[in-house]
Amino acid sequence: MEILKTYKIYIGGAFPRTESGRYYPIVDASGSTIANVCLSSRKDVRNAVVAARKVFGGWSEKTAFNRGQILYRMAEMLEGRKLQFLEELTKQGSSKEAAALEVQESIDCLVYYAGWADKFQQIASSVNPVSSSHFNFSALEPMGVIGIVAAQETSLIGLVKFIAPAICGGNTAVVAASEAFPLCAVTFAEVVHSSDVPGGVVNILTGKVSELAPAMAAHMDVNALVTESLGELDKPLALACVDNLKRNLAYQHAVPQGLQYITALQEVKTTWHPIEQIGGASSSY
């Protein structure tokens, strides 16, 4: 007899069940149940945000090199569990070819952002030649806690393509998995967990998008919301974001790789400091 996997959620580096005690079934193409997954609640979102906020300082202050190493480690771990992902994808209705492509894309995506971790700052920051005796520079800083609603039509890449650029830039994330295809999300949480990613940096919930996304959008301690075309939900989410002027990144379609996905989750900070002109007389170096 096959032992079925229990699909839990991932909050603060632990794998709890939803506090609500609710579940929903995932069915395969033939209509038979392949798993029960957590139907997470607003309170799970709240707990995840608390966990993500708690580690934001530590994660954002890690060296860029270190964050790159950890993202690369995630790619390695994903590669190592390729078969499991392929199986889950096909179980959820993907063809073998599509599943293989999606896993490969996800690995490539992690490697891609691993490389960006210590480079995007150099591309996007500036030294600004002001007309006064000051040194002035603008550098990027992570926004903070990012609410992410995974792209809904895929199980794995739709999740990875938003998580990777967010944490690459030093943010922490609270993620709602694909509602219909959540299996890979939980397995991906295990990849995250085993990849030196500190607990709380990535938090993954399964459940109804219509329940989780509004909870993230309205949460006053979430700094940005990332979504991909959720249809009728887009406008209410945009409205809910206004209360704390949450940055609302509602992509029509996001591709798995691009610098703009990192920079969109960064604030530009400009710093001024006086430059002393030595001596009173003219200086010729």
Binding site: S133, H134, P274, I275, E276, Q277
Partner: peptide, 8 residues
């Protein structure tokens, strides 16, 4: 003393 501040 910050000289730039003094100049301002």
């Amino acid at each position: 003393i910050d000289k730039v501040g003094v100049e301002e």
